[in-house]
């Protein structure tokens, strides 16, 4: 049952998916991998929307060059752990949810423990090797992975449902070459918002998900495009019959 304060706080979105939908969000435990550009947008909107439990993980400290896009962190946070300022921003926006912010590097060794109790995974990473770890963990746990990535004016997003859709390795069998990428805050805003919208739809059971559809945002030309994808029967991650 929602409290009176919760009914008031979430009243505009309860108009969308009812108190039942809001209760579902409040019961959902979210893992957010990264508190950078995408992680900022994703975690702020998820906290505001009332996802009941948010675990956000980042190993970095805030740098001045992060502040053009990483809106979880402010000028006074430069030099502090991103997880620390993330905790303060998120509980500041919504003190009624549970926030756990961890200073950790996501690795093969700790990912199982980090994901314990989580219902969905939000990809806010800046590299494919860790994304592949998230993908494998999502497949093993049979929980959805909401993929997003950005560079400059450009971004992409898709929703991965184990057992139903292509996995990340089906779509991107190879990691792109690592490089320092240009980053614009508003591109993180577009892609992170799409990921959160997907998560809200998934949890409340509304609409049509980005399942087997890879969405592209080309901000420079103001274009959205999509490509259909399907499970690869030879995929190294999801084709062994287990998923």
């Amino acid at each position: 049952m929602l409290s009176d304060a919760e009914k008031k706080r979430y009243s505009r979105q309860i108009r969308l998916f009812g108190e039942d939908g809001q209760e579902r969000l409040l019961r959902t435990s979210v893992f957010i991998a990264g508190a950078g550009g995408l992680g900022s947008v994703i975690s702020l909107y998820m906290a505001a929307a009332g996802f009941g439990k948010i675990r956000i993980v980042d190993c970095d400290t805030v740098e001045l060059s992060n502040l053009n896009r990483q809106i979880l962190h402010g000028n006074a946070d430069v030099g502090r752990a991103k997880a620390k300022s993330a905790y303060e921003s998120l509980t500041g926006i919504n003190p009624e949810i549970e926030v756990e912010a961890l200073v950790e590097t996501i690795s093969e060794e700790n990912i199982d423990q980090l994901l314990q109790g989580c219902d969905i995974i939000m990809d806010a990473m800046d590299n494919f090797p860790v994304r592949y770890l998230l993908n494998r963990a999502a497949l093993q746990r049979k929980i959805p992975l909401f993929h997003g990535a950005i560079s400059g004016y450009q971004g992409q997003a898709t929703t991965i449902i184990p057992g139903k859709t292509a996995c990340l390795a089906c779509i991107f069998p190879r990691a792109p070459p690592a490089s320092v990428f240009p980053a614009l805050g508003s591109t993180c805003g577009v892609i992170g918002s799409i990921q959160v919208t997907e998560a809200v739809k998934y949890v409340t059971g509304a609409g049509k998900l980005l399942e087997n559809r890879l969405l592209f945002w080309d901000g420079l030309n103001g274009c959205l495009d999509e490509m259909a994808c399907e499970r690869n029967s030879a995929c190294r991650e999801c084709s062994d019959g287990e998923y």
Binding site: D126, Q156, F181, D225
Partner: peptide
Amino acid sequence: LKIVRFVHGG
């Protein structure tokens, strides 16, 4: 054919 450069940043 459509060839699209995908991105990896976050």
